[in-house]
Design a protein around this nucleic acid. Structure first.
Length: 510
RNA sequence: GGGCCGGUAGCUCAGAUGGUAGAGCAACGGACUUUUAAUCCGUAGGUCGCGGGUUCGAGUCCCGCCCGGCUCACCA
């Protein structure tokens, strides 16, 4: 590492040497902690209420550890805050307790950002804060690079946390997520919530009797969605391979195999634009249930979302970017054609492709080359209807061209039995009664091949092995895909997908 | 990919009309035995995203590029 060291880093390296010169190991092996910060505070307050403090107002001795978050020296005493993953707690150093040598280490060789373990009695300061009076301490890890720490002020009345000079540069925060996390407890909380959401998804599906499976990420042929793939090469096999864009076709193969309820939570990869709602790799949940149709799946999705909200938020009513969202079943059902017809002023299926294209062009929707009827309808729907769907809404019964893997609608052969769940204008789930007629599926693939020939790069590929599986017999099956990152954004009130992905994709900088 | 905005000290930011870079916090030295954005005195710290150009002189003006944010598009 030949990087220039700035002044602060040079000083810290010097302190590292000084610590060693005094026989203090700056990178400890372990520390026996008795309490987390929040536990220590609770313990003290409990004893205090019970009148169990000693004559000098001291409670029990605890051993706490964390990162030094603030430091205030006052000559022969010093105050600091140690932050761990539960909270932060104030610690108090006194020269007369620690002795000259140790106190010198505190004043001269500790820095903000260092990991420190301390042992001492709990008491309440004159200003009312529960504090550890340090009897001994151990340097756990010397921080050699200054963290972008803001200065935290706590509003005495509201208890609100005000940070001065906070680390706000988004690029820096995404590129160095470790620093972002280290200085922002609220960012850590978003990702804890994400973990709870994913756990709740698993818990619900497990309870419902779904089997969790893992299907290939690296695939000889991609499919199950309309998207451009990442292409790679296997050297030993000397062949092109693709990162999956969806789990769908493999999961349905498993239903053919006799697993009647399966699900997978995993990464999909789509080689497309990056923005607030799209990261090239993202987390997808897909689940499939034999003998069920899309109506059954709507009901299941309602129950699943309610469970996830209960488990992760403790409420079914929450705010997303200032807007109240109510996850209270039954969600609204809206037919795709009726909604679009209302917006267009006539039945979309009666309009010739030429007219649809004219309407789309008049809305300034570009990139229409190669778009067939289906894509035109979808674009018009996206532009005219979807944004306005704020509360949870199942949009149902999509045109056939749009859904090459969905079963034809039992009452209208121009449609498929498919729904998308829209919340706050964003697609959260996509589902259908799965197409299980192998002959029809072959025709649909052929139509896609036609679209591809017209220039639609996202049209789906013929998958002979999948067709063979269908020929063995796929029972009636309902299937659902849920974009986990989008769901997490909603439930954690985050404006960008980058805020719910720990290490989002960014361009490289040299 | 288009449009708009931005990149100045470790962090947050200020630098009218071009004159050779500043503040707060962090750091360093000193004072201070219950402070909490501690306070007080002092010190140090910058390839102004990168590369060209105009000019006696560029953080500032011009051109190109890199990176980011928002937005439109893309994205079932």
């Amino acid at each position: 590492m030949t990087e220039d060291l700035n002044q602060v880093m040079k000083v810290r390296r010097q302190k590292l040497e000084d610590l060693r010169a005094r026989g203090v190991e700056p990178f400890a092996y372990r520390f026996q902690r008795t309490h987390k910060a929040s536990e220590a505070r609770n313990l003290f307050e409990e004893r205090e209420r019970g009148g169990l403090l000693d004559a000098d107002g001291f409670g029990p001795v605890v051993r706490v550890a964390g990162r030094i978050r603030s430091f205030r020296a006052h000559g022969k005493t010093a105050f600091a805050h140690l932050e761990d993953d539960s909270a932060s707690i104030q610690i108090y150093f006194r020269k007369d307790i620690l002795g000259e040598q140790a106190f010198e280490v505190v004043l001269d060789l500790l820095d903000l950002g260092d990991w420190l373990g301390v042992e001492g009695g709990l008491f309440r300061t004159r200003m009312g804060e529960v504090t550890v009076r340090v009897a001994s301490f151990q340097v756990l890890s010397k921080s050699l690079r200054p963290l972008p720490l803001g200065k935290v002020e706590e509003d005495a009345q509201s208890g609100q946390r005000i940070v001065h000079g906070d680390f706000t540069d988004l690029e820096g925060r995404y590129r160095q997520r470790y620093a972002d996390l280290a200085v922002h407890p609220e960012v850590r909380e978003v990702f804890r919530k994400r973990a709870r959401i994913v756990s709740a998804l698993r818990e619900f599906l497990d309870e419902e009797g779904f089997l969790e499976v893992e299907t290939p990420v690296l695939q000889p042929l991609y499919g199950g969605a309309s998207a451009r793939p990442f292409v790679t090469r296997h050297h030993a096999l000397d062949r092109t391979m693709y990162l999956r864009i969806a789990d769908e076709l493999y999961l349905k193969r498993l239903v053919v195999g006799g697993f009647e309820k399966v699900y997978e939570i995993g990464k999909d990869f789509r080689n497309e634009g990056i923005d607030r709602f799209h990261n090239p790799e993202f987390t997808m949940l897909e689940f499939y249930q034999a003998l069920a149709d899309y109506q059954d799946m709507m009901e299941l999705v309602e129950r699943l979302l309610v469970r996830v909200a209960d488990r992760s938020l403790g409420t079914r009513v929450f705010h997303y970017q200032g807007e109240e969202i109510r996850l209270t079943p039954p969600f609204r059902r809206l037919r795709f054609l009726e909604a679009l017809g209302e917006a267009l002023g006539s039945d979309p299926l009666d309009l010739p492709e030429r007219e649809l294209r004219r309407r789309a062009e008049s809305l300034n929707l570009p990139e229409l080359e190669g778009a067939g009827r289906g894509k035109l309808l979808d674009k018009l729907f996206g532009a005219l209807v979807q944004e306005g769907l704020r509360q949870p809404t199942f949009v149902m019964d999509y045109p056939k061209e749009l859904s090459p893997l969905a079963k034809v609608h039992r009452q209208d052969p121009r449609l498929t039995e498919r729904f998308e769940l829209i919340i706050a204008g964003q697609e959260v789930a996509n589902a259908f009664s799965e197409l299980n007629d192998p002959l029809d599926q072959r025709r649909r693939f052929e139509e896609q091949t036609g679209l591809r020939a017209r220039g639609d790069e996202e049209a789906q590929l013929m998958d002979e092995d999948y067709l063979r599986a269908l020929e063995y017999g796929l029972p009636p099956t309902g299937g659902v895909g849920i974009g986990v990152d989008r769901l997490v954004m909603l439930l954690t009130d985050q404006p960008s997908i980058r805020d719910v992905i720990l290490f989002p994709v960014l361009r490289n900088v040299e």
